[in-house]
């Protein structure tokens, strides 16, 4: 099971829900949620794969106005492990209610900051011991960061105005490296050709993937060709 590439999807709500489901299946998680604010388009997005009854109660109780996994976590640049929020009253109220739906306190929220003041909050949870949670978190955290930004970027770009403002802008180095990769060179080949370290090449590729909304380097190459940013010989 691989996580779906959202940039290829029409971005219907069902696809976003499917994205959350595959993230959970791939990474041994129970539930996932996304909430985002796009101040340019003045839109708010939210979707979750929590049980319907819990979603209903959540809205009825107005938890979105005091949920610390959203509101407090939004002020961090680092992923916020919910253990950090446990002493807040609002956290205890929320999770006392959530407990009846099999939703545990072990979870984390990844805050995403976009270039236009847009904020995305991607959160995941898993019912397990704190120790197990710690191990799982360490294993999946880097990947979760990438998925959170992929999801957020695609939601933000689903709005016509933001899409018009956010055409990918690669640096000269990123373009040069993608051009060599498109010509079939390996990462080490490119490092040797440009006389820079292998890891510098890797960092520029990672940045290119992020800017092009791609999950893999091949997708990034394909998209860069499609946008006329690089030209295969």
């Amino acid at each position: 099971m691989t996580v779906i590439d959202l940039s290829k999807q029409p971005n219907a709500d069902s696809d976003l829900r499917l994205f959350l489901d595959t993230v959970c299946e791939t990474h041994e998680l129970d539930f996932a949620a996304y909430a985002g604010v796009n101040p340019i388009a003045q839109t708010v997005h939210g979707f979750v794969n929590y049980p319907d009854e819990w979603q209903k109660l959540y809205v009825e109780q107005g938890f979105q106005h005091r949920d610390p996994t959203l509101l407090t976590a939004a002020r961090s640049i680092a992923p916020v492990d919910w253990v950090r929020l446990r002493q807040e009253d609002s956290f205890r109220t929320l999770f006392r209610a959530a407990h009846d739906f099999g939703i545990a306190e072990q979870g984390l929220t990844i805050p995403v900051r976009g270039p236009y003041g847009d904020i995305g909050l991607f959160s995941v949870t898993r019912n397990c011991s704190d120790k197990e949670w710690g191990l799982l978190k360490k294993k999946i955290l880097g990947e979760m960061q990438h998925l959170a930004v992929h999801l957020h970027d695609n939601v933000v770009r689903s709005h016509a105005l933001t899409r018009a403002l956010t055409s990918p802008s690669l640096s000269a180095r990123e373009t040069e490296i993608l051009q060599w990769v498109a010509a079939g060179k390996t990462q080490q080949d490119v490092a040797d050709i440009l006389n820079i370290s292998n890891r510098t090449v890797e960092v520029h590729l990672r940045s290119s993937r992020s800017k092009l909304g791609a999950l893999t380097t091949s997708q990034a190459v394909g998209r860069a060709i499609g946008l006329g940013l690089i030209h295969p010989n």
Partner: peptide
């Protein structure tokens, strides 16, 4: 991306969830 762009000589900054 905003104020040290002179260092990048007008070029685009790196952007990555893990940088």
């Amino acid at each position: 991306s905003d104020v040290f762009s002179a260092i990048l000589d007008g070029d685009q900054p790196l952007r990555s969830p893990t940088i």
